[in-house]
Simulated assay, not measured.
Amino acid sequence: MLGSASSISDTNVMLNTMVADVFAEFADRLENAADFEKELNLIIKETVKAHKRIIFNGDGYSDDWQAEAQKRGLLNLKSTVDALPLLKSEENIAMFERHGVLSRAEINSRVDIVLENYCKVLHIEALTLIEMMNRQVIPAISEYTDRLCTALSHKRVLNINADESADREIIARLSAAGSEIYKLTGDLKMAVSSAEKIADMLEKATAYHDIVLKLMTDIRKYADSSEAVVSMDVWPYPSYGELLFSI
């Protein structure tokens, strides 16, 4: 599915060119056919037989379809980095040049531009995440952990034999999450620095996808789990509930 920040024009260029290419092939066969009806039926039969594996009427977002697509030998390109190099295949370049849509140089330049933009966006997002974790999320976790430790100490001073299991569990959970976020944030900073030194654009984009994005996802996991137990008055960002129902 097209991302909300992307233009639909590029997608339409690809789809329209592919459809035009196939229709041109059909038209050439039909225009030169001795028997139009017979040739038309033959085209339909051949096309369905050759491409029926792409037809799927179930949930296209399910894991079942991914497994079925793999069984059918269909490509499953899960990221921009996986998909873009195929645009530069000789088959695709020939198709675009055949219809006068894009030249080889134009295709290559577009791939480089998209890869560069991909790297820049992830670079900005990674630096933003580092800033958010170091200056707001980690301090919030520490502050709330300290609050819980203080409350636990007060319970012990009262000597009322209160159950400490919930406090101790949350303290341990937040301490572990804070430590992991701190470590992963440091790893992310180094990964971004390393990725920025790569000259080849595809290699650079691959590093951002395979290393930087993975670290960002891991950090998000620990931040989300912490948000679930940190008090709302301490957590530095509004929750989805607040965004949806409090504005």
Score class of each variant (00 low, 15 high):
Met95Arg: 14
Glu90Gly: 00
Arg104His: 12
His99Pro: 02
Glu125Thr: 11
Pro139Gln: 04
Leu129Glu: 14
Asn159Cys: 01
Ala94Arg: 15
Gln136Ile: 05
Arg98Met: 05
Leu158Pro: 05
His123Asn: 11
Asp146Gly: 02
Pro139Trp: 06
Leu87Arg: 01
Ile124Glu: 12
Asp167Phe: 08
Ser153His: 13
Met95Thr: 07
Asn92Cys: 10
Ile124Asn: 14
Lys155Asp: 08
Glu91Met: 12
Met133Phe: 05
Asn134Ser: 06
Glu143Gln: 13
Ile113Lys: 14
Leu127Met: 12
Met132Pro: 03
Arg110Lys: 15
Leu87Phe: 11
Ala105Arg: 12
His154Arg: 10
Asn159Lys: 12
Asn117Met: 10
Pro85Tyr: 07
Ala140Leu: 01
Asp163Arg: 01
His154Phe: 13
Thr128Asn: 12
Leu158Ile: 03
Ser89Leu: 06
Glu131His: 14
Val111Phe: 03
Ala94His: 13
Ala162Cys: 00
Met132Asn: 13
Glu106Gln: 09
Ala140Val: 02
Asn117Ser: 12
Val157Pro: 03
Ser165Tyr: 01
Leu86Asp: 07
Leu84Arg: 05
Met95Pro: 07
Glu125Tyr: 08
Arg156Val: 06
Thr145Val: 00
Glu125Trp: 05
Asn159Thr: 05
Glu131Lys: 13
His123Tyr: 10
Glu164Tyr: 02
Leu122Gly: 02
Leu152Thr: 08
Phe96His: 05
His99Trp: 11
Glu125His: 10
Ser109Asn: 15
Arg110Ser: 11
Arg98Tyr: 11
Val111Asp: 04
Arg98Glu: 13
Val111Ile: 11
Ile138Met: 05
Glu116Val: 09
Met95Gln: 10
Lys155Ala: 03
Ile130Tyr: 05
Met95His: 08
Glu97Lys: 14
Ala162Ser: 06
Glu131Met: 12
Leu152Met: 10
Pro139Tyr: 05
Val101Tyr: 01
Val137Ile: 14
Asp112Val: 15
Ala162Val: 07
Leu115Arg: 01
Glu131Pro: 01
His99Val: 08
Ala140Gln: 00
